[in-house]
Each structure stands twice: as C-alpha cells, then as structure tokens.
C-alpha cells in the first residue's frame, strides 16, 4: 500500500511562489496552510496579507483573502472579525509592515484582545524594497541603509515584538519560533496551530513571530542564511512561548 506522507496542502493554491531561492517565507506559508487543513477550517478562514515580500500571498492561500495597506492588516482583520465573528481571521505580516509602519495597528489589535491570529515573519531586513534596515535589523548588521552596520546612536536598537506584545493583557498567545531546520519547523507549526486554536476558543489575540531568512539581502547562500539565523538572530530573539492561556496549555 502506498501512502502519501507529504503533499501540498489544500489550503495552498497551485500557484508557484515568487520568493527568491531558499527564502523561508514558503515554508511559513505551507505551515499556515497545513494548520488550516488539519483544523478543517479552510471554508471558514479569511486571510489578510501585507505590503512587502508577501504582498502576493493572496494568490497563494486557497481561502478568501484581503490585501491590506502597509502595516494596516490588523485593522483590516478587525473589520472582518467584527462583522463575521465566527470566521477564523489571520494576518500574515513582515517586520517592516508589522514592527515599523504598523506598530499602532498591531499594538492596539493586541490590546483590544482582537480575536485574530497574526503570523509575523521577522527576517531582520526589508526584502522587497531592496535590503534596507528593518526595525528588527540586528545591531551591527549591514543593510543598504546601514552600509557600515546598524549603529545604535544613529539607527537605534531592534524592536522585540514578542516581548513587547506579551506585556499587553489582551494578548492571549505570543510565541517566537524559527524555521531554520526541520525540528524547529515542527515546533513552529505547533505554535501556529495554537495561535489558531486560541482564536477558535475566543481567548483573545494570538501572534506567532517566525524567524525567517533573506538569503538575497543578507548576501548569503540559502544554506549559510539558515546558519546565520541560528547563530545571530536566535541569541538576540530568544525562541519560546511568551504568553499562553491555561486553556490551550
């Protein structure tokens, strides 16, 4: 008997991703889609995609989708969830979108305990616009707008989104995960599933920060990028569950 043990999830369309070779956005898309499939919620899910590299995510998720203005996805998701409270609503946002221009929207969606799920992809750089400094760019990290490395007196220090949002009472579930190897990919998927379950149970706002690579703008091979993530990002952005309601523990 032949058994398919790994195939493309139904919650992804068949459209080919436009991402650069080795970019881990594709892994994160797949994990979200797998969770949607496994929870059996595809018919009931609405996604909101950002401005940035994942701007075309509406073509990839096989569910009803919204494209939001830069940083505004949590507000758009709020509008959807408040009209259709029984739908599962998620946003998929990068670090420029969520942690820079969209800080007000994400903080207040979390503070309101908005019953939405946010997948926050942190790769420490602006991808689509050409490798500029992100709010999450590491100290000393070279980008096209910090050519000598991010220097704190001039460019400040990174925003730690999971730590910041977990101080808010309305935030029910906050976790930081990584996708740099298969073991962490499995852990990431578990966290994403919990973030959807928290919404399903009506417990409040849920966010999973996923550390991701950008081989193109980091100037590394895809393989080197995974290593760079593990050695440089994880020490600065510790993995773990920052907040978790007792109901889903």
């Amino acid at each position: 008997m032949a058994k398919v043990i790994f195939k493309r999830p139904e919650a992804l369309t068949d459209k080919q991703f436009h991402y650069c070779p080795g970019c881990t956005h594709g892994i994160i898309h797949r994990l979200v889609a797998e969770v949607i499939d496994e929870m059996g919620i595809r018919d009931n899910t609405v996604g909101v995609c950002p401005v940035g590299c994942s701007v075309f995510a509406y073509d990839y998720f096989n569910v009803d989708m919204f494209q939001a203005a830069h940083g505004r996805a949590p507000a758009v998701a709020t509008g959807i969830k408040r009209t259709l409270p029984d739908r599962m609503v998620f946003t998929y946002q990068g670090d420029g979108d969520l942690a820079s221009i969209g800080t007000a929207e994400i903080v207040h969606a979390a503070a309101r305990g908005e019953k939405i799920t946010t997948i926050f992809v942190n790769n420490a750089v602006y991808g689509m616009t050409g490798g500029q400094m992100a709010p999450t760019t590491l100290p000393g990290q070279k980008t096209t707008t910090t050519p000598k490395g991010r220097e704190k007196d001039a460019a400040g220090l990174p925003v730690k989104v999971s730590e910041m949002l977990s101080t808010l009472d309305g935030a029910a579930y906050i976790a930081r995960v990584s996708v740099h190897d298969p073991k962490h990919i499995l852990q990431a998927k578990k966290a994403i599933r919990k973030a959807f379950e928290v919404q399903q149970a009506g417990l409040g706002f849920a966010l999973v920060e996923v550390l991701s690579t950008c081989p193109t703008n980091w100037g590394l091979s895809p393989k080197e990028a995974l290593k760079w993530l593990a050695e440089n990002m994880i020490p600065y952005y510790p993995l773990g569950v920052y907040k978790e309601p007792a109901e889903v523990k």
């Binding site: 008997m1 032949a2 058994k3 398919v4 043990i5 790994f6 195939k7 493309r8 992804l12 080919q16 991703f17 991402y19 080795g22 970019c23 881990t24 956005h25 594709g26 892994i27 797949r30 190897d181 298969p182 990919i185 499995l186």
Partner: peptide, 23 residues
C-alpha cells in the same frame, strides 16, 4: 526512508513523499 525532512524544509513545496507500507 521516507522521513520527509526534505519536503518539510523545501520553501517551494516542490516535494511529495510516498511511502510503501508493509502488507
């Protein structure tokens, strides 16, 4: 061995894994 590590790591969902199960 059909561990599907490759498929899990693939960012472009290129890989499908089928395992023969013993009768």
């Amino acid at each position: 061995k059909g561990c599907a590590m490759c498929a899990r790591m693939c960012p472009d969902v290129v890989i499908e894994v089928v395992k023969e199960e013993k009768q």
